[in-house]
């Protein structure tokens, strides 16, 4: 199956000579949720803007739904809905008019039933006759989503959709994104809340200083790069890590009451068993034990720093 978005050797040099994207290659599959992660200024918005036609590319080739975004811009853009990072709205328009405008702009015949559905799904129906300037920030964010969905796009870009959105609403949004995916919509989102990517994404791409440094299936990424931690609450205080364990990745907590063993998810069985055996052999007793997996956030921070150092 051909990818829904295909980016080949994409470069972007802004006027003034700053290179925001460096030879990006990326494929996003039909119907997946792809999370694009990266620190501020990494080039996420730049890449999205190019794919959506807002910014010109410097070199390379981009296809959306199989259509070249330059030569076949009409067809390519028609398949895409965009929720931009900035909350740019026409203050004086009503919610209903703004969403209807977007649908028309994308060349679709009026369909009040669809607009109603979108507004209801985003809990904006009661506000349909309100002017946009009377909406709260979170409502404006949802309005932007409604505008993007007004023309029934097959590909949806969400550039930090949950920035400034409260916890409950964020959950609703995740729910909505999942529902869209079930309907077959391909979703590309950027976020600084890593737990969001962890919760939602099928695949994850990490971009840093204009370069894609990693693209992985989320589950694989978690198991490959994720670390696990085993914490043992000791019966008696220790002064230092026992000599028998000195070669193992074991640390002692500051108060001396906890042994912390860190291991890669992949080698878990053997390591844990060996550790517990050794402890039994040397007579160290423990009251309790807990394991904890590192979050995507920790993986992400590790990745970005490691790459920065190297």
């Amino acid at each position: 199956m051909q990818p829904d978005i295909s980016v080949k050797n994409l470069n972007k040099v802004y006027e003034g000579g700053f290179q925001a994207l460096k030879n990006i290659n990326l494929e996003i599959n039909r119907g997946e949720i792809f999370a694009l992660l990266g620190p501020n200024g990494a080039g996420k918005t730049t890449m999205i803007s190019i794919i959506c036609g807002i910014t010109n590319l410097s070199s390379g080739e981009v296809r959306a739904a199989g259509y070249d975004i330059v030569k076949d811009y009409r067809k390519a853009r028609g398949t895409i809905g965009l929720v931009p990072q900035e909350l740019n709205t026409d203050s004086f328009e009503t919610v209903w008019n703004a969403v209807s405008f977007s649908r028309g702009l994308f060349g679709k015949a009026p369909n009040p039933a669809h607009i109603e559905k979108v507004l209801r799904d985003l809990s904006l129906w009661d506000k349909r006759n309100n002017r946009i300037m009377t909406l709260s920030g979170g409502m404006k964010r949802r309005l932007m989503i409604a505008k993007a969905l007004s023309h029934e796009p097959r590909i949806l870009f969400l550039d930090e959709p949950t920035a400034g959105v409260d916890v409950e609403l964020r959950r609703d949004m995740w729910e909505m994104v999942r529902k869209l995916r079930e309907d077959g919509v391909t979703i590309i989102l950027t976020t600084h809340y890593i737990e969001e990517a962890e919760e939602m994404a099928d695949r994850i791409g990490v971009i840093r200083q204009g370069e894609i440094i990693l693209v992985e299936d989320k589950d694989q990424l978690m198991s490959k790069l994720g670390k696990k931690e085993l914490r043992l609450q000791l019966q008696n205080k220790l002064d230092k890590v026992p000599g028998e364990l000195i070669l193992e990745p074991v640390e002692l907590s500051e108060d001396g009451y906890e042994l912390i063993y860190t291991f890669d998810s992949q080698q878990e069985q053997a390591g844990v068993a060996r550790l517990l055996r050794t402890l039994g052999d040397i007579g160290i007793e423990y009251r309790d034990l807990r394991t904890r997996e590192s979050s995507l956030e920790e993986i992400f921070v590790g990745l970005v720093h490691e790459q920065a150092a190297g």
Binding site: R74, A76, P84, N88, T89
Partner: peptide, 13 residues
């Protein structure tokens, strides 16, 4: 206001 993004991203010549 920045709302131009929508026109630029739309399939209009």
């Amino acid at each position: 206001s920045g709302t131009i993004y929508e026109v630029l991203s739309a399939p209009v010549s």
